[in-house]
Amino acid sequence: MREQLMSSTLDSIARGEKWEYLVITVAPHESLADTRRRLVDHAEYGQWELQRSVHYRGGTRRHWMRRRVIRVRSTLQS
């Protein structure tokens, strides 16, 4: 299973984007239960939501997950 973060949080904030994306690519020989567990873990602990899933002809599956970029402002006085 391969995971790829599409854009880092700092790059997303600099460009004014509201979402960051995580693409998870699953090989045909990997079990559906393992894939489901990985997606649930990302959703539960990383606050990701499943946006799109594609099942390709060769058996490869690709899942796009997204989460809102949270902009944190400093409360420290300069």
Rank of each mutant, 00 (worst) to 15 (best):
M1T: 02
M1E: 04
R2G: 09
R2D: 13
E3W: 06
Q4V: 12
Q4Y: 15
Q4L: 15
M6E: 12
T9R: 14
T9M: 03
L10H: 07
L10F: 05
D11E: 14
S12H: 03
S12M: 11
R15L: 01
R15A: 06
E17G: 01
E17H: 11
E17T: 00
K18D: 06
E20P: 00
Y21K: 03
L22W: 08
I24V: 15
T25A: 09
H29Q: 09
H29M: 01
E30R: 08
E30S: 05
S31A: 12
A33N: 01
D34R: 15
D34G: 09
R37H: 04
R38L: 15
L39R: 13
L39H: 07
V40C: 04
V40F: 02
D41I: 04
H42L: 14
A43F: 06
Y45R: 12
G46M: 08
G46L: 09
G46R: 15
Q47E: 15
Q47D: 15
W48Y: 15
E49V: 15
Q51W: 03
Q51T: 02
R52S: 03
R52M: 05
R52G: 00
S53E: 06
S53L: 15
V54E: 08
H55C: 02
Y56A: 13
Y56C: 03
G58H: 11
T60E: 15
T60V: 14
T60K: 07
T60R: 06
R61Y: 04
R62W: 00
R62N: 03
H63S: 03
W64C: 05
W64V: 05
M65N: 12
R67C: 05
R68G: 03
I70L: 11
I70M: 13
R71H: 05
R71G: 03
S74R: 13
L76Q: 07
L76G: 08
S78Q: 09
